[in-house]
Design a protein around this nucleic acid. Sequence first.
DNA 1: CGTGTTTGACCGGCGC
DNA 2: GCGCCGGTCAAACACG
Length: 608
Amino acid sequence: MAKGSGLSIDSDPIGFFLHKPIVLNSFQEDQYIHRKNKLSTSTTTSTATSMDTTTAIQRSPPPTLQFPVNLNCTHVDDHHSDSPPPPSPPEKRTVIDEMDFFADDKNHVAKASSADDADDRKDLIGPRDLEFNVNTGLNLLTTNTSSDQSVVDDGISSNLAVLHAELERMNSENQRLKDMLNQVTSNYNTLQMHLMSLMQNQSKADNSEGHGVFEGKIEEKKSSDNGGGGVVVPRQFMDLGLAANGDTDEPSLSSSEERRSGSAGNNAKNGHGGGDDGPQLFDQEKKEFDGGLTAREEGPDQSNSQGWGSNKVPRFNSSKEADQTEATMRKARVSVRARSEAPMINDGCQWRKYGQKMAKGNPCPRAYYRCTMAAGCPVRKQVQRCAEDRTILITTYEGNHSHPLPPAAMAMASTTSSAARMLLSGSMSSADGLMNSNFLARTMLPCSSSMATISASAPFPTVTLDLTQSPNPLQLQRPPTQFHISFPNPSQNLSNSPAASLLPQIFGQALYNQSKFSGLQMSQDMADPSQMGHQSQSQPLGQHGSLTDTVSAATAAITADPNFTAALAAAITSIIGGGGAHNNATATTPTNNTNNTSNANATTSSSN
DNA sequence: CGTGTTTGACCGGCGC
DNA sequence: GCGCCGGTCAAACACG
């Protein structure tokens, strides 16, 4: 094996955050030069794509004007003889002129006639509208008076009124769903505190009774994880609920973490002496935790608002089955693909590098990091450049933070955690988690794009969030008229729904909103001022690896669009209703995106 | 001197 | 059983 190959990346997270100059060896320099050469291309591409998206949005409105105009045609005819037309302000003609999309000779004839008197003008309104409806011109309006103006204005205003009413309705619904989510979140937190209290009592009871070796070791480990403070909860729960959730339904603590604790605490420098105890300790701890959770389950609403279904699945399996399930869950990962020039994306957390290896099939080394924001945080990540395109940085996260996160870290953490949770909820909804994941992956719509990928073919279930394509996050801001969401159909499986693909972002946003930060605000609060700004506004994706911006942009876009909140509600409903397998949230959009994820068993996105 | 990185060694899972 | 490989450990080293 190519150990010590020298293909190292200076990736001091702290230094990175502080704009510490990055020192590269010759190979890295080659890589970075290569990437820099490519950067202009990729940046240009991203920018162009963004512009295309914007243009597409701006082009959309005009044709819809026909409908209200026709409505007013009837209206005017009905009042033809009732009231004389008000004086026509000439200046309004310019407004009408702007609507003369289709001019032809007929309109000139009509224009001449319309100049005679108001009644004649009114008479012409009907035919003119008909002509308009069949794509003839509106030039006759250039001499029309206010009656015609009012016709158009009334049409537009009535249409606007309709739209406004619709918007208000959606906003109210949006607010209602937010309230519901907040309440569910609150209930969940309360439930979790109950659980902690219960577990604490249980652990004390077990300890006092002098039960088997596992319990004793668990106590030892728990104390170690909490800085020896004597707290007997498995891990500290953060107030945001995110990490607590992750700890609850996604046992992220790897065996090595146990080994590490054991080595440090007991075996000192003997290194691997505690290795064998790690998984057992964790499994036992996990069983206790799950058992307590199951016992305390109060109902689907509470248990799933943040647990995303994993918590709600009863854990009455035998110990062997539980071990299998836990092994699967422990390995759940979220991989984020993003274009980045930096050796490591700024996700707001602090990382310490603990290893580097050459991975098979990739000339680029894989770096291993663990979170150092809190002692005993089980989160690890692997950073590796894509072999095919070295401008793409693949960051794979495993586990959930056991500590409060700064705002800058919330977006990524919540997104990845939610993605993992989504995956796990799918896995846990079946006795065979992996097969279910495969099914979930395969049954996602083929027409979708590559924002989220679920891969069960890997040794561990992995969700891949592909952020290398800028259109996807931006497309989340498409006007509601181009993004239709239909609400749950109980007879359909969630996995059939394209909205399922939005769950990582949606859930991330939900969790993020829960923490009282908006995506935009978070983006502005980021530690690195150079990476401030709203990605969805204009900043091309992939510049300097501001992945957090990307995520926040996507999540902010979701927040901005009531339809996405509706999708969130639908998704939550889906999970609440059946571990992500009963109800259905459907987001129907035309798609034209391509899939660029190599291991894409299923990809989804909102696209147009 | 404290903190973080580097890197050779080691472990465990898995396939043959 | 053996080798491969991913993942981790920890002594040595670098740096401020």
